[in-house]
């Protein structure tokens, strides 16, 4: 069982890292495929201004599929976002049917068309920092995201983005 748990932890890590690549590269369908039907997504931050936990974005799997499918209809900042993620902790439930993970996250933005492309395109800056707090369902050989909370430290997002983090 210990060896199995070790394998499962590795699989969870691999899923988190692969999902970073999918999200970086806008492979939204791959991301959705790795989410359970009851998946829930939220971006949150604590606001010391109003002393409250603020939900910035989120929804269930159907909602996230819907908004990613319509991105081409919206005017967006197309400056790429790249995730640097380190999985800090993976815990496998005693029954081996679920898991939770905490990952540190930094997202960098390389300007393309968000400001003045002639001057700014190619400039990289930190877009946000925070953590992924993930929960997973393990069913046989399959591991899927059940819940992802993107817990932000950064609260000044300026122009923001249309893309999930």
């Amino acid at each position: 069982m210990a060896e199995n748990k070790h394998d499962l932890k590795e699989q969870v890590r691999e899923l988190i890292y692969n999902t970073c690549i999918h999200l970086d590269d806008h492979q939204w369908e791959h991301w959705h495929d790795n989410c359970a039907d009851n998946f829930n997504y939220a971006i949150r931050a604590f606001s010391p201004e109003v002393q409250a936990d603020i939900k910035y974005h989120g929804g269930d799997k159907e909602y996230m599929q819907s908004i990613t499918s319509m991105l081409s209809k919206h005017n967006s900042d197309q400056s790429p976002l790249r995730r640097h993620c380190t999985v800090y902790r993976v815990e496998i439930a005693a029954d081996g049917k679920s898991a939770a993970a905490i990952s540190s996250l930094a997202v960098y933005q390389t300007q393309l068309d968000g400001i003045n492309s002639h001057v700014d395109a190619g400039t990289t800056s930190v877009f946000l920092v925070g953590r992924y707090n993930d929960k997973f369902i393990i069913d046989g050989g399959s591991i899927k995201f059940e819940d992802r909370e993107v817990r932000l430290d950064t609260r000044r997002l300026d122009k923001g983005t249309h893309w999930p983090i």
Partner: peptide, 19 residues
């Protein structure tokens, strides 16, 4: 949030325009 959050559909577009 669906419209006006920092990840919402409209606010990002408005802020791009004034930028």
């Amino acid at each position: 949030n669906s419209i006006w959050g920092p990840f919402g559909r409209n606010l990002h577009e408005d802020l791009l325009a004034v930028t």
